[in-house]
Write a protein that binds this DNA or RNA. Structure first.
Lengths: 154, 154
DNA sequence: ATGGGTGCAAAATGTTTGCACCTTT
DNA sequence: AAAGGTGCAAACATTTTGCACCCAT
């Protein structure tokens, strides 16, 4: 069952309505290469000739999350990003603390770890999204560069 | 070297100044059992007879982060929480998607995974903080309860 | 004495909510 | 027709920034 169909089914199942706005948000989430913010979703919807209010975007995202079709991820910049769980394959990110690089990691590389977690702690981890902080290869050598006070631009 | 000493050293090293406010924020971060929001830090500082403006709290947190002494974590509720990397032992969290329970996981349980990551991808993961979403043992059985539309309170 | 740091207040962001009107069912 | 959903605008919450004054060095 495709994501659209699943959404539709869950909506009907529960008595929610299908509206053009909800369709638009879902379509945009499908088309996007990567996770998107609420504002990006609204902008993309416009390009599809669909107008959706930002409040409606948030309300739809909330609904999709409640249905388990969407996950919210935080890359640490204060913006919430959203991504359909079933599209583009679930994946994870390594973020370099120094240069900010975002490295994509596929689920398979992390699966053994999640399995161990379930066996040891009884916690069924969902391979939704992990953000792991650290230093990328290039930045490991530059680690000792600390921030300078203002005006100390020697 | 204690965290305070390390902070002091890094400040001096770079020409930054040591102020009562910065000391207060650092002390509060030490005393706190768990991660805290900027507002909680400010409130705690007051109880220590130290007055710190919220803007100063943010500026100090930024500095501590730049020095690598502090990490910001996001539990998904839109609030940023901060925690000293060297206190209370670094740890991680499993968060139940359903009941919201926060389960603490010690670093040792995750270490093998981080080591593998470095060997395979050359990415030196810092065991700062991981937030892993999923279902706790109790909620796994209740998984099929989906949200209801308004007014459908049967 | 210098100039980095602080407090205060305003601004900027991002998200949520109330309400009248519109649309799906 | 009925009830849920949307748009608009105001309300909120959090974080950032400008600026005059203060204080650590």
């Amino acid at each position: 069952m495709s994501c659209q169909e699943e959404f539709l089914a869950k909506l009907r199942e529960r008595g929610f309505r299908l509206t053009p706005q909800r369709e638009a948000v879902l379509t945009v989430l499908h088309d996007l290469e990567d996770h998107a913010t609420a504002e990006e979703i609204q902008t993309c919807a416009l390009q599809l000739n669909a107008t959706v209010d930002i409040a409606t975007v948030y309300r739809t995202l909330e609904l999709l999350q409640a249905f388990g079709l969407l996950v919210m991820i935080d890359l640490g910049d204060g913006l919430r990003r959203y991504e359909l769980t079933s599209v583009h394959g679930t994946h994870h990110h390594l973020r370099c603390r120094r240069c900010g690089a975002l490295i994509r990691v596929e689920t398979e590389q992390i699966e053994p770890f999640l399995t161990a977690l379930e066996q040891e702690l009884g916690f069924r981890a969902e391979a939704e999204h992990l953000l792991i902080s650290g230093l990328c290869q290039a930045c490991q050598a530059l680690e000792n560069c600390a921030p300078q006070p203002p005006g100390d631009d020697a």
